[in-house]
């Protein structure tokens, strides 16, 4: 699996397999008893739960403690306050997923200025620099995820059909990259397809916005959502209207995985490896606490998932047995 996307500063991605901590370093880490905190956009999504599991399991291996996990509820102000409070409690490191772009840059910059190591998940706010402001960004290959979403949707779209992109109206690196890549693939491989952006500021207003779009665009032939929760919101709207459209998205959340197995709406998912990403960010943080520089842009390629391989992908991504409903016969 190759890495398609470049980093927040145009870096070529380093594969996460390159993060290797020697046994001697591991021993040094265990003696140091590092203390870490985690600040997430949300702790309720399947992605977040899995990433946390990966972080916790890895910190455990290196004798580090996870002192606190903060759920920012996607709120910029909450994140800014949490970072300030945690920095004052002087942990060795903070792992954060910035909930915005330039709006949260200063709050993150203050973490490292205070001498606390900062590792970022998925998002590098514009204006922050690796080395001085943060250790690494550990990310899914978001560009690759968008490409997978386009590739999996394309066969379902008739010539010259209209495809909607459920696009997150926020200054967010990861979702931007997915959308840009989706558009790029469609532009070069399916130039016949007409693309329409359907922008939503938050999940709460998505149903109304999408309904209005469907009313105005009866010719819609398919949909790409930049992550699984908006995709499932859109599926609810479609189901209520009795309108069946092919949908692809990113993130193999439980609901989305079940919908993919059912096969009515969700036709493909570009799956992120949340658990592995958690492992990688924990390893990168430990590496940096030991005084070594991990690469500034560490990337985990996505996994193209369709009905036929959903059970297998689930196992690989969540590191646990798939629910029975996913184990559909391969021939379907």
């Amino acid at each position: 699996m190759s890495i398609a996307g470049l980093g927040p500063h145009g870096e070529r991605g380093a594969p996460f397999e390159q993060l290797d901590i020697s046994e001697a370093d591991a021993e040094r880490a265990r003696l140091a008893c590092f203390r870490l905190c985690v600040v997430l956009h949300t702790t309720t999504s399947d992605w977040a739960k899995q990433a946390l599991k990966g972080i916790a399991a890895t910190l455990d291996v290196y004798g580090a403690s996870l002192d606190e996990v903060v759920d920012c509820g996607f709120q910029i102000d909450t994140q800014i306050r949490a970072l300030g409070r945690l920095t004052d409690s002087a942990p060795d490191a903070i792992i954060s997923i910035p909930v915005g772009g330039s709006a949260v840059a200063d709050a993150h910059r203050r973490v490292s200025r205070a001498g606390v190591k900062l590792a970022l998940l998925d998002n590098g706010p514009t204006g922050l620099l690796p080395g001085s402001d943060y250790v690494s960004v550990i990310s899914a290959d978001n560009f690759g995820l968008g490409t997978i979403g386009a590739r999996l949707l394309s066969p379902y779209i008739p010539p010259a059909g209209r495809v909607g992109i459920l696009s997150y109206q926020a200054d967010f690196f990861a979702t931007n990259e997915r959308e840009i890549a989706f558009r790029k693939w469609m532009g070069s491989e399916r130039p016949d397809i007409r693309l329409s952006a359907i922008k939503f500021p938050d999940l709460g207003s998505l149903a109304a916005i999408f309904t209005a779009f469907l009313d105005a665009n009866p010719d819609l032939a398919g949909l790409f959502a930049v992550w699984d929760l908006p995709a499932m919101e859109a599926v609810k709207v479609l189901a209520a209207r009795g309108q069946c459209l092919p949908v692809t998205t990113v993130d193999l959340g439980n609901q989305a995985a079940l919908a993919l197995a059912a096969g009515d709406f969700i036709k493909g998912i570009a799956a992120q490896r949340a658990y592995d990403q958690g492992v990688a960010v924990a390893k990168a943080t430990i590496t940096s606490l030991l005084g070594r520089d991990p690469p500034s842009w560490i990337v985990l390629p996505g996994l193209a998932t369709q009905k036929a391989n959903v059970a297998e992908a689930y196992q690989r991504i969540w590191h646990e047995a798939p629910p029975a409903a996913l184990c559909v016969p391969k021939a379907v």
Binding site: G5, G7, P8, H9, G10, T126, G127, F143, D171, N176
Partner: peptide, 10 residues
């Protein structure tokens, strides 16, 4: 001269 957004691709 501050960047509000930036994107790179190969």
């Amino acid at each position: 001269g501050r960047l509000r957004v930036e994107h790179y691709e190969a």
